[in-house]
């Protein structure tokens, strides 16, 4: 139980998922060029953190661009009109991706202490659970369920 509590409240490592690497508590890495070392990681770090240990404008522009692209994809999915049963799941996945993009990077949850994430995520979990349950209840409200 104590271990679970620590996981709930303490910041260990870099956060909850490991993309991209938050280098804030590390020294600036030596730039090794595309050949030597973990070039992909360095390339990513350069773009995401402007070569320093904190996310920079370039990174934010990149996130903003990706969010705009996802929005375009959503509208494209709308314009296609042939997705049938896949339409709503696809839209929901894209919306969640945008949601996470803004929350994680623009709102800095990705770079911040995890307790903020827990605050927000726990209310999201409670909210999503009860409101989805509410929709199921109301969906079946006027149709007799044989069980």
């Amino acid at each position: 139980m104590a271990n679970l509590w620590q996981k709930l409240t303490h910041h260990k490592g870099n956060g909850w998922w490991n993309l991209p690497h938050t280098a804030s508590n590390e020294l600036n890495p030596p730039h090794e060029g595309p050949v030597g070392g973990a070039w992909l990681g360095n390339w990513w770090r350069f773009w995401t953190h402007g070569g320093v240990s904190h996310a920079g404008p370039k990174f934010y522009w990149l996130v903003g661009f990706i969010l705009a692209v996802i929005t375009a994809l959503e509208v494209w999915a709308f314009a296609l009109e042939g997705l049938g049963a896949w339409y709503i799941p696809i839209l929901l996945i894209l919306a969640v991706a945008k949601f996470i993009g803004v929350v994680a990077y623009f709102m800095h949850l990705r770079f911040d202490k995890p307790m903020f994430t827990w605050f927000f995520a726990s209310s999201m979990v409670v909210g999503v659970l009860i409101f989805v349950a509410l929709m199921f209840l109301m969906e079946n409200a006027h149709t007799p369920v044989l069980f």
């Binding site: 199921f136 409200a141 369920v145 069980f147």
Partner: peptide, 9 residues
């Protein structure tokens, strides 16, 4: 209210 047996259960 009449939510149905599944919900009530």
């Amino acid at each position: 209210v009449g939510l149905g047996p599944a919900a009530n259960t």
